[in-house]
Nucleic acid binder design. Structure first.
Lengths: 202, 202
DNA sequence: TGTTTTATTGAACAGTGTTCAATAAATTTG
DNA sequence: CAAATTTATTGAACACTGTTCAATAAAACA
């Protein structure tokens, strides 16, 4: 079955090539401004043929969506080296924000853009769930060490995530212009430190 | 000049009629899924004629964007009756979140959707600025009464806004599905109460 | 009654996602 | 090797999009 194997490899290569072209255009122009013809053009291919490898535009998007989550999860790996749960929690936020800063376009695809998400169980959503579980676990560890007393861990997790996401979302949708005289970097990082200061008193 | 006056009134009426149709479709389907032909159809009008009253689709959007901010600012009016700055701050957040819950579609238009925003000085942006100034003022008042000691008011304002927005944005972009067994209402309100609990300890 | 604004229309243009018959290329079968 | 079959590719077509614009109708003014 050497031929069939090679066939499949070739198919995967084409799949990758489309994805590479799509990644460039998607991250450059966002979901709506990316067209199948753009993608096809980028890799000198015909628009119709893309549908031989992907069901539709949304499926390509979801592939990148998943890709983004893998990237993020990878960045979070270093947290294993942080023993203290509260320190780990704080580092988690910093990495999350750094990720949004470094990968504004991925962040948009992952957390802001909404396209027909027929099945939430697929793609990056599973990984998102895992990431949230990780966050939840850290928080519970913190509570076992006496922090965040009397807080419901579920709601507390949601609140922490909201705060992190809020900082990143304002940045990624260019809603920081109202804060004149501060760079986005300053806003995000010092804003986060303010939040950490709140946590520290709790 | 009675005729000219009537003429202008008629023009304003058409303007309004278009906006009414647009509002319905925009809030129903969002920015991208709303087409000029949809709007025209809604009010039994021709697509081309809309351009006699509006420069382009984006201009109609900005009108609704502004409308949304007026709605929000109106809701915030009741805060004048709250004397204590910290109580006012807490109420502010509650109203903000309630607004997002009640006007999910407006919230999307106002804070999440991004379309070619050529001139940030126009439309709802000015009002957004005012709302932020209001928030900033409340926080400074709180600090004068001894709260939030040692916090930079600018960054602290940004952080508070981020936390509020994060809660609303996760809700409005349907990113709350990871928290199973809790309704959106519970998540948003109890999530917010968690945040308030943090503030209270500061 | 002209003449000139003002408003409306529908066709047209270039673009979109997607489908599909025709075609070419590669592989398997006889 | 030749024929049949599978696999891959194409470009045209469909129904849609925002926007423009010449033609036209309606209203206001002279």
């Amino acid at each position: 079955m050497g031929i069939a194997e090679r066939k499949q490899e070739e198919k995967q290569e084409m799949h990758k090539r489309i994805l590479t072209g799509a990644r460039k255009i998607f991250l450059e122009k966002g979901y709506e401004q990316t067209s199948m013809r753009n993608i096809a053009n980028e890799i000198n291919y015909s628009p119709g043929s893309i549908y031989f490898y992907f069901k539709d535009k949304s499926e390509i998007f979801h592939e990148l969506h998943k890709e983004g989550f893998h990237l993020l999860v990878n960045q979070l790996k270093v947290l294993n080296k942080v023993a203290d749960p509260f320190e780990r929690l704080k580092a988690m936020g910093r990495i999350f924000i750094q990720f949004a800063k470094d990968n504004k376009d991925y962040y948009n695809l992952m957390f802001i853009v909404d396209e027909p998400q027929k099945v939430p169980e697929t793609g990056g959503f599973k990984i998102a769930q895992e990431a949230i579980n990780q966050l939840s676990a850290v928080i519970k560890e913190c509570q076992q060490k006496g922090r965040f007393k009397g807080m419901d861990p579920e709601y507390f997790t949601f609140m922490i995530l909201s705060a992190m996401h809020g900082i990143c979302a304002l940045f990624c949708t260019d809603r920081t212009t109202s804060f004149v005289g501060k760079t986005n970097d300053e806003l995000m990082h010092h804003g986060y430190e303010c939040f950490v200061a709140l946590l520290e008193k709790s």
